[in-house]
Each structure stands twice: as C-alpha cells, then as structure tokens.
Simulated scan of single mutants.
Amino acid sequence: MALIKNILVLVVLLSVVGVSFAKPPHRHRNPHMKGGLDLDYYRFKCPQAEAIVRRVTFQYVSRRPSLAAALLRMYFHDCFVRGCDASLLLKSPNKDAERDAVPNLTVRGYEVVDAAKSALERKCPGVVSCADVLALVARDAVLVIKGPWWPVPLGRRDGRISKLSEVNLPSPFADVNALKQDFFAKGLNTKDLVVLSGAHTIGISSCGLINRRIHNFTGKGDFDPSMNPSYVRQLKKRCKPTTPTTIVEMDPGSVKKFDSHYFNIVAQKKGLFKSDSTLLDDLETKLYIQKQVVTRGASFAKDFSESMLKLGFVEILTGTQGEIRKKCAFVN
C-alpha cells in the first residue's frame, strides 16, 4: 500500500468529510516483513512518505470516486506482469511498453501516481520508488470510498523493463481453470482468485467486451446460457451491438460501494464477464461465494486485506535490484 504538521492537516480534512485513514493499532506488531519489505521502510529516509501519498490520493479520488476502481485495476495489471515493479507506468516512444498493450489502453489514473511521486520528490528526492507509490495509492484510493484497509510493507524497487509482448493478464473471457493457473503462477491461490475478484464490486466495463456474450454467443444470435436470462435482457437494453463504448456496471446497484454485493450478483448468475460467472464452476470458489452471500460478507474485508497483502509481494525487486525512478514514466 509522518511529520506532525502534515498529519494534523490531513486528519482535520478527513474528519470533515467523514473518511478515516487511521491505521489499526496492531500495525506495528510485526514491522519486519518477508521479501525484504518493511512496514517502516521509510521511517527515517522519508517519514512523511505515506502521509504525502494519502493526501494526494484523497485530493484526486474524493473529487472523482471512480478513480478508486481504476487505480486498483492499475495495481493488479502492474503486479501480474513482471511483478509489482511499476513497469506498467513506463512510457515507450515506440509504443511497445506494457501500457500500450490492448488490455492496458483503458487503464487510467496515471496522473494520481505522478502527482504523488512529484510531491515525494520535492520532499525526499530519489528515495521512494514508483512501485511503492502505486501500492500505497491503490490502498488509499480504496480507503477514500470507505473500503477495507490493508498493510503495505514498503521497500520495492522500480523495474527498468516494460514490454508489450509480455503482457499476459488474466482474461475476462477465461474459465476458472485458466484463471487459477494465472494466479498460481504468481504465487496466489484459489481463495485469492475469488477474493480479489470481489474488487469488481466497484468495477465498470464497456459493452464491447460483453456484446458477443449477450447478443451472439455461438454465432446464432443467442446468449451465454450460464447467464441469468432476465439480466441478459437488461444488458441488451443498454448494450447495443452498435454502441461498444457504452459503460456498464460490474456490480449493478452497488458500484459506488466497496462491499460484498458482487458475490450476490455472481450467485444470481449475473456475473458480467465469463471470468465472473465461471467462479461458480469450481467447488472452492463457489463455496466462498455462497459463504459471503449467507453471512452478508462477514469475512470479505479481512480476506481482501490478506489477499492484497500477498499480491504486493509478487515478483518484487528489492535491495540493489532495479532503481528508484525520478519520474514514473521514464527510467533514470
């Protein structure tokens, strides 16, 4: 995923709007984490680092709450290619970097990360990596919309390589077995798959990604039989074959709230993507979905926090690996 002056300013501001960034009291119970990361990594190098990132993130996301989903998605897309090394943020004059791959063309929110990094460079030049900034921004963006908190151990280094050809993200058209293999390859398990899919509670998509599924699934003008027919009728009213850029919510009725409602939608066979619906095809993921429905998401926030913590360790660079970029879009 601080000096007294900045903390007081932030606390006053957040208390006015009813958003709390307070850390749980157990945060420092285990300050030294695995993989070379540490919850207090910048304690002496840049003590205001986390407060600066929170302030900037709040400024952006409070004005445009939809950025929370966008920034969380950006973090996922970065960590699943070369690990959590901010390689997604790099620009290429030849348009052959990760951000130029088709799945990443709709990634947005780069300006938030850049603004946070610029603020850090003014206070602590050359100290805080873009990879750590992105991890913190993703966490804090979710907090702005009153989603769950999770610890963000720090100390990642920035990668220097970003290739379009290496972008192989979990597909919205994939079945559960393919998705499990994608997650296993990153050291994540089946529970992490279904838990992190819960982030779709605040997600949106374009009709173009589901038009075939609802209008012409097998080439005969039919729809995917795994979908709820009444839901398909609703989607058809909004998503016409001629309007692929129209936006549709992934968790209708609850898209602005980070909660467990997504699992209710999936259980009702209203998953927007194949990758959502297919979670009912695996015993472990199906049982998890049913549990969240019955308990009204009693464990979802805790589970999501734990899976996000795990995600933050995927193929990280530490120590003398990589670099600390001055600007997130360019290598030094």
Rank of each mutant, 00 (worst) to 15 (best):
D132S: 09
G187L: 13
Y110P: 03
H200M: 11
E111C: 01
F223P: 03
A119Y: 05
K117N: 12
G126H: 09
L154T: 10
D132K: 11
K91T: 10
A174C: 11
L136F: 00
D100T: 03
L179P: 07
V127W: 09
R99F: 03
W149S: 04
G155W: 02
I214V: 14
V102N: 00
C130R: 06
L154K: 09
D132R: 11
S171F: 12
K180M: 13
P225R: 08
L188D: 07
R122W: 03
Y110Q: 10
H215V: 11
S197P: 02
A135R: 00
P153S: 04
G221V: 08
R156I: 02
L209G: 05
L105G: 05
P148S: 07
A86L: 00
V112P: 05
V113A: 05
L164D: 03
V142Q: 10
C130Q: 05
F183W: 09
D96Y: 06
N168E: 14
S226R: 14
S162K: 00
D222H: 05
G109C: 10
V144Y: 01
R99E: 07
I145D: 01
F223I: 03
A115C: 07
A97L: 01
K163F: 05
A119T: 10
E121F: 10
V127N: 04
K163V: 00
N216D: 15
E166Q: 13
S129A: 14
N211E: 14
V113Q: 04
I214T: 09
V142R: 06
R156F: 05
L88G: 11
G198A: 06
K220V: 05
A115S: 14
C124S: 07
P148G: 08
A178I: 08
K95R: 14
A131D: 07
K220R: 14
N216W: 06
P153E: 10
V142T: 12
N177Q: 14
G219W: 00
V107H: 11
D222C: 12
G147F: 00
S171L: 11
I202K: 06
E121Y: 07
I145P: 04
V127R: 07
F173H: 14
A86D: 04
S205C: 13
I214C: 07
L88K: 06
P172G: 02
L90Q: 08
D192Q: 09
R99W: 02
A174S: 15
E98I: 12
H200P: 04
K180T: 06
V194N: 02
G155Y: 01
L105I: 09
E111K: 05
L88I: 10
N94R: 15
K91L: 12
V127I: 15
T190G: 07
R99S: 12
A97P: 03
A135C: 01
D140Q: 04
L169Q: 08
L143W: 00
N168R: 15
I202W: 07
